[in-house]
Amino acid sequence: MSTALLAAERIGRNYPRERCVALSDVSLAIAPGEYAAVTGPSGSGKSTLLHLLSGLDRPTSGRVLFDGRQPAGTGEWASIRARNIGFVFQSFHLLPTLTARQNVEVPMMGVVAGVRDRRRRAEELLARVGLADRAGHRPSQLSGGEKQRLAIARSLANSPAVILADEPTGNLDSKSAAGVLDLLEALRREEGALLVIVTHDPDIAGRAERRISLQDGRMVADERAAGRG
């Protein structure tokens, strides 16, 4: 437990007004560099778990620890996300007014001081995800696969120790999905980052070192396998 980078201690999240329990009594410890897949049917609480693990949402019971301690509040969680957590979403969530390069710079604002340094780092990351020639394009000018590669570049902006990906291939055709997944796995290996990937594709889950299964907001399995990741 002491080696865990990200830990949940009996966390639950309910919505009393809707009388809905999104997540209940989940305990979990993920070590640095670990590759875990979270599976489960739609509505089983996968996204809720990711949001709680990153401080975007607060558990209604239990607690979440980052690097062994419980962050004090919204401000501390924001700073942890800025420096240590990269997000990849199913529907990309890129900022439409900004170019690809500027999108990658967004997480660096307030973290990397120099304007030039931000720019250089963004260009370097775009090259790593194969979008060097798309730096000046806006998200609307990119294909689905390119958008998700851009989002991956953005998630790596501050070299986070944690990458959280919520169904990153859910909106992609199988060919670009495979490309995006290969890229994500390769980069997390290079960076040595902890990766939690939410998916309901068993093939994808099979590539992870660890599989966490949720059902109706409860953890029904937590298995380690000899994954390729």
Binding site: S54, A78, R81, A82, H93, P107, M109, R154
Partner: peptide
């Protein structure tokens, strides 16, 4: 709202 949520997910503090 969505974009503001994205900024928050990227770790932007409320003051920024």
């Amino acid at each position: 709202t969505r974009e503001i949520g994205v900024l928050s997910a990227m770790g932007w503090p409320a003051r920024r």
